[in-house]
Design a protein around this nucleic acid. Structure first.
Lengths: 351, 351
DNA sequence: GTGAAAGCGCTAACAA
DNA sequence: TTGTTAGCGCTTTCAC
């Protein structure tokens, strides 16, 4: 290392670690050489030698870091982890599978002690890296179930959630209910679509072929698809109801409906998913389906840290959280029969 | 390690790394022992030995991970970093200073190669850890200037930003302009308050004593303070204008004003700060001050990675970005003189 | 106040 | 196929 450049070797170590047993003269010289060589000590070797329990920390792998869903869960994870003395690193895969593998691998090599993973699933599910983790007894908790391997899972009951939303809409008098679905390939998207289909198969209300609209999971998707769908929409179909893949899609849709002068909730009812903080503050405040994301984060962190701190191997846990329908202002009971509504609202829209 | 438990030692290594030169019988036995002992290999030692350039990665230290400002910048950071083959870890300090120190230290020990830091500043600014970084030639870029040390900085021109907003409001005919200020101790908060004061000192319009309202930086702060302030507000003071610390505070305020049936922008004009994505989609869409946060993230990552990849020490860089006023629907030119407005709007509010 | 040497846990190359 | 050994870059102990 920098020893050749100036003097000895243990001395350099003493300088770097600010030990007082070094003469000012030598210290200055060493410091100068270090700067000249742009020398950066290797943390790995330091911690290895020091046997320091380095800083305890866990990782959280999300699909999109700028999505409120991720952020809200992060906050819960962090809260619990910090209590237990762990730092949290958040890394985003952008739903790319090889990105997930890289991150996982880097966590292992960096001695991150465990991970919470919102998996980036696509069609060709590769889970080699998860097997590798298991071999290394690397603790991790998934936020979605993964087929083909026994893992710890904390997830949400999408089927029940969608079902309660659809049933509520039907009770309100809606017959024309559609779903703005999320990004293809994501397991939440698929589960929610399936749940949507299933509820209809068990109910008197019919599901139309075009009831499931492929949309995406972001604000701009909701807006774009909202404009596309409703600017050409047959007003005779009103009142309608849209269950959105998540809250931000719902926000985008609400923005589009506002622009098209379509009344919410009377002409079109909107339901979101996740209950992010802003849902309550939006105008009109958003009816949505959700469980406390903060609690979910805390729970995931708790599961993970239990595994980390146990010296025995714990049995696999699979926990499913229930989501509640939270009624706000983007839905309401329809006052009249759909038939009479049509003219009424049409008139209103024109006048 | 696990050698004593079963057989030899290099063999265990071979098993863990899935090398094919191991008999099934031994592999199974070793695997079983590993599981029994809950043995987790040390990534540090592995990478040290392998001299693998481990995965290149950088860290991003934010104050609040669930704040859209952080998320938006993260996205830019990640985009640029990934292009260059770096992973990004995001860690949040919750504005706690010792948390920042811990994270920085853990980055160093984990061989994260550089960091972008949104500093958690409080009154007693401690920057020992930053000095330590400099000694180690650890590359970092700050998103706010720090006194007492020469560091690389990418920041935003708060003074110019606030100034342009105030001037615009005055041009619109506003005379009663207030500021919902952010969290105390944060340098953005202080800079914006100072800028606010300064503009008035240079203008004909007077600043009242109570024009700066301590609020906070979150959605619920904007809502709470909005309700407090305007439910008791003297309607004679209308029209007013509020420059908020950031966009989410503005959202909270808009929600409060809606609840209080106060018209935006005619009775109260609102300006945000940051121009986060939702600002455009909110109803009414939010007038705000901002620079592209995505670009800012990219720029910060670019600065950082340049430093990392240079074998020489680069000169300190300080870059200030300009923020533009983005006019949307929460502000407008006032049509009449303030005097005549009062009765007019009062009537409207009652009717 | 400074230098030499041992050894952290692991992998890779080689010997058995 | 398995066991043995050197050595990654650093810190630390102990002579000097």
């Amino acid at each position: 290392v920098a020893k050749k450049a100036g003097v000895s070797i243990g001395t350099v170590s003493n300088v770097i670690n600010g030990r007082p047993t070094v003469s000012d003269q030598i210290r200055d010289r060493v410091l100068k050489i270090i700067r000249e060589l742009n020398f950066r000590p290797q943390g790995h070797a330091q911690t290895l030698r020091q046997q320091q329990v380095s800083h305890k920390c866990i990782g959280f792998i999300v699909r999109k870091i700028d999505h409120p869903w991720s952020s809200a869960i992060s906050t819960g994870v962090k809260h619990y982890a910090n209590q237990k003395g762990y730092l949290v690193y958040v890394a985003s895969t952008e739903s790319k599978h090889n990105s997930e593998q890289e991150i996982v691998q880097s966590f292992v090599s960096k001695q991150v002690q465990g991970a919470i993973i919102a998996p980036a699933l696509d069609d060709t599910v590769e889970i080699d890296h998860l097997f590798r983790l298991k071999i290394n007894n690397f603790p991790f908790v998934m936020l979605e179930d993964v087929h083909g391997i026994q893992v710890n899972v904390l997830s949400i009951d999408n089927t029940e959630a969608i079902s309660s939303a659809v049933k509520y809409l039907i009770k309100c008098g809606h017959t024309n209910i559609i779903h703005f679905a999320g990004t293809a390939n994501e397991s939440h998207t698929i589960e929610r679509i399936n749940a949507f289909r299933q509820v209809f198969s068990e109910s008197a209300v019919k599901l139309r072929k075009d009831s499931i609209v492929s949309c995406g999971g972001e604000l701009k998707d909701g807006y774009r698809v909202g404009i596309d769908y409703f600017s050409n929409a047959d007003k005779n179909k009103f009142p309608m109801a849209v269950i959105c893949f998540n809250d931000v899609v719902a926000f985008g849709l609400l923005s589009a409906l506002k622009e098209l002068d379509i009344n919410v909730p009377n002409q079109v009812a909107v339901i979101g998913f996740d209950d992010i903080e802003m849902a309550k503050y939006w105008t009109p405040s958003l009816t949505t389906i959700g469980t406390s994301l903060f609690d979910m984060g805390e729970k995931a962190a708790e599961m993970l840290i239990n595994i980390i701190e146990s010296d025995k191997i714990l049995p696999i846990q699979k926990i499913t959280l229930h989501a509640d329908l939270i009624l706000r202002k983007t839905t309401c009971k329809l006052k009249r029969t759909p038939g009479s509504m049509i003219k009424n609202f049409h008139k209103q829209a024109v006048g």
